[in-house]
Each structure stands twice: as structure tokens, then as C-alpha cells.
Computed example of a mutant assay.
Amino acid sequence: MVGTLIEKEEIGKYKIIPADINRVVELNQKLSNAQRLGNEFKSKVAIIFQTENGPKRIETTVWSLTDNYIQIKSGVLIPLISLISVEF
């Protein structure tokens, strides 16, 4: 799996940028499932997203999903266009 593992609390240290390939459409169902897993079962998923420092990976629960962002703990938002992968 690509991406350097970081703690979700470290996300603010990085500038999140769009991924090389926009995967929003292909990841939409996985994101919906990730939100359900987080809300109903408190299950974590691995999320890989693009930053100026290269891909970063976090393991967290997805609290909510909008048309443009996923929200994780503490109100942290990650733009969907920056997502590279979502794995259960």
C-alpha cells in the first residue's frame, strides 16, 4: 500500500492537494460504505490522500461524507479530489 502512515492528528501539518487522477466517482461507493462502517460499527478504514509531500495514509473512522469532502474525527475535512485509495 502506498503512502506514508501518519497519525490523523498530524493532517494539519500537510498541505493537501488534488491527486494525479480524480477517483471521486470510482471511490464513491467505498466512501459510502466507509461512512456506514464508521457510524454503525466504529470500524476504521485506511485512507490514502495526496499532499505536497507525497501520499499520506491514515487509519481512521469516516464520520460523514459530502459532495466534496470526507469528515473524520475532530471535524477534520479531507477533499475527495485528493483521495488516492480507501481500503477496509
Results as ranks from 00 to 15, higher is better:
residue 60 T to W: 08
residue 66 T to P: 07
residue 51 T to A: 08
residue 15 K to T: 12
residue 62 V to R: 12
residue 73 K to S: 14
residue 11 I to V: 02
residue 74 S to M: 11
residue 52 E to K: 06
residue 5 L to G: 07
residue 18 P to S: 00
residue 62 V to C: 12
residue 13 K to T: 05
residue 55 P to D: 00
residue 68 N to K: 15
residue 80 L to H: 04
residue 80 L to F: 02
residue 39 N to P: 00
residue 13 K to C: 03
residue 76 V to G: 12
residue 8 K to N: 13
residue 71 Q to W: 06
residue 5 L to K: 14
residue 21 I to D: 07
residue 1 M to Q: 15
residue 48 I to S: 10
residue 75 G to L: 01
residue 85 S to P: 09
residue 41 F to E: 13
residue 88 F to Y: 13
residue 42 K to F: 07
residue 12 G to A: 00
residue 72 I to W: 10
residue 68 N to G: 10
residue 54 G to Q: 00
residue 27 L to D: 08
residue 52 E to M: 03
residue 43 S to F: 10
residue 10 E to D: 09
residue 28 N to L: 11
residue 88 F to C: 13
residue 3 G to R: 01
residue 44 K to E: 12
residue 38 G to I: 03
residue 68 N to Q: 15
residue 54 G to R: 02
residue 85 S to N: 10
residue 16 I to C: 04
residue 36 R to L: 14
residue 61 T to H: 08
residue 50 Q to Y: 03
residue 72 I to Q: 13
residue 50 Q to A: 10
residue 63 W to D: 15
residue 28 N to G: 08
residue 45 V to T: 09
residue 20 D to F: 05
residue 69 Y to V: 12
residue 62 V to Y: 11
residue 72 I to N: 12
residue 77 L to Q: 07
residue 16 I to T: 03
residue 13 K to F: 02
residue 60 T to D: 09
residue 83 L to H: 09
residue 36 R to C: 06
residue 3 G to C: 00
residue 8 K to G: 12
residue 13 K to V: 01
residue 68 N to A: 13
residue 35 Q to T: 14
residue 2 V to F: 06
residue 2 V to H: 12
residue 63 W to N: 15
residue 13 K to P: 02
residue 26 E to I: 07
residue 76 V to H: 12
residue 85 S to W: 02
residue 59 E to C: 04
residue 57 R to C: 08
residue 35 Q to G: 07
residue 17 I to M: 04
residue 28 N to A: 14
residue 62 V to S: 11
residue 78 I to Y: 06
residue 82 S to T: 05
residue 39 N to C: 03
residue 57 R to A: 11
residue 17 I to D: 00
residue 62 V to I: 15
residue 8 K to I: 11
residue 25 V to K: 09
residue 64 S to Q: 07
residue 62 V to T: 09
residue 39 N to G: 01
residue 18 P to N: 01
residue 50 Q to W: 02
residue 7 E to A: 11
residue 67 D to M: 07
residue 30 K to E: 15
residue 47 I to E: 04
residue 23 R to K: 08
residue 29 Q to V: 10
residue 54 G to L: 03
residue 34 A to C: 04
residue 25 V to W: 00
residue 77 L to Y: 07
residue 53 N to V: 03
residue 55 P to S: 02
residue 12 G to Q: 03
residue 61 T to S: 14
residue 36 R to S: 14
residue 38 G to A: 05
residue 22 N to K: 01
residue 62 V to D: 13
residue 63 W to Y: 14
residue 15 K to R: 15
residue 74 S to D: 15
residue 16 I to H: 06
residue 82 S to Q: 05
residue 44 K to R: 12
residue 78 I to K: 10
residue 56 K to A: 01
residue 50 Q to T: 02
residue 16 I to S: 04
residue 25 V to P: 00
residue 67 D to L: 13
residue 5 L to E: 09
residue 34 A to D: 06
residue 49 F to A: 01
residue 23 R to T: 04
residue 61 T to A: 14
residue 71 Q to A: 13
residue 55 P to R: 02
residue 53 N to Y: 05
residue 60 T to A: 09
residue 18 P to K: 05
residue 14 Y to H: 06
residue 62 V to F: 07
residue 45 V to S: 11
residue 8 K to M: 12
residue 77 L to H: 05
residue 70 I to C: 12
residue 56 K to W: 01
residue 28 N to S: 15
residue 62 V to K: 11
residue 39 N to V: 03
residue 56 K to L: 03
residue 86 V to Q: 09
residue 23 R to A: 06
residue 61 T to R: 15
residue 71 Q to C: 11
residue 80 L to S: 04
residue 84 I to G: 08
residue 65 L to H: 12
residue 31 L to W: 07
residue 16 I to K: 10
